[in-house]
Design a protein around this nucleic acid. Sequence first.
DNA 1: CCCTACTATGTCTAAAGTGACATAGTCGCA
DNA 2: TGCGACTATGTCACTTTAGACATAGTAGGG
Lengths: 180, 180
Amino acid sequence: MTSTLGFAILAVLARGDRTGYDIAAAMRRPVGYFWTAGHSQIHGELQKLRTACLVEFETAHGPGPQDKKVYRLTAAGEAALREWVTAPPRERVERDELVLKTYASWLADPETVRRLFADQLALHEARLADYEQAEASYDGPPPFGDPRFGNYATLRCGLGYERHRAEWCRWVLSQLGDGG
Amino acid sequence: MTSTLGFAILAVLARGDRTGYDIAAAMRRPVGYFWTAGHSQIHGELQKLRTACLVEFETAHGPGPQDKKVYRLTAAGEAALREWVTAPPRERVERDELVLKTYASWLADPETVRRLFADQLALHEARLADYEQAEASYDGPPPFGDPRFGNYATLRCGLGYERHRAEWCRWVLSQLGDGG
DNA sequence: CCCTACTATGTCTAAAGTGACATAGTCGCA
DNA sequence: TGCGACTATGTCACTTTAGACATAGTAGGG
């Protein structure tokens, strides 16, 4: 019954106890590179996870009108996460607005398309530089079994993705150059 | 106001007049590789597009309880599509369940993870073979300005994506081999 | 002649995700 | 001392997406 977002939260919590706010921050970076959620969604999901006894929390004095709640995985939560990890993932389609634009790009002025792709290329190159710096902070891949293996493997996926994307942008730009 | 799905429909319609059913079929393949929608969503969106005067239709006798409706772009629809094409795309995050699973994979048994990735690798290789066959049917890239440029460019993006994905799967498998 | 698959349009519900609004304490800077 | 940024939880309304249900003609194979 637990949604994918629920498991994303469990995966963050498996690395250490967190407040909902902390989880939302993790969902921006680094988990955000492959799954995101706003804090409103996270608070709601945490309540569902608690009802299902997959997480529990302790209150502590915090800022704001309410006490803060520090969540942690229960044994059932860890078991559920462990089981989900190796279950086959749902086929989820790419939803990519840039590719969709490209699909219709023959209608547009080549010079404007060039600007669009130049911007996108710059964006991917910036991200790539960011990821490469992150990779340099590792001393080679951590062993499987180490939580850091997960971080490194996802980073590596992001690295490959940004490289592929940048190369594709360059290819589109080269096609514009030949034709216009 | 028009949603991305609306523009996806306009982009399909820009290639020729279609019924809602035909658009739904196009949304499965080839547009489906980067945007999808069920027919229920498409019929609703077509009604919105019609209210906005971006599409119009002619009825024709067809099977089923209602007449079939053959939609086509209006001049306003084509203009809207043209303008949208070069507008900067919304930052849309990757939502990738497999990467999320990898993020939590250190909890799981290596042998089961190996099976998961072997399956995923096979899937990507199959898609890659499919795309390569499609690419072979082209006689090099069509010129920009030809509607087929859009088809070819998106195919090329899919090709790069599947290659990156397959390579990442192989890398994860190699890490399991060393450690377990 | 029957059965299945395909064409074709639509409604309805539920889940998932987005973004604004609300509240309020602490910490550092100017 | 005032102001803005950060910590922290939550609600509400809206849009988007997924999937089931409903209906019905035509074409082709066995």
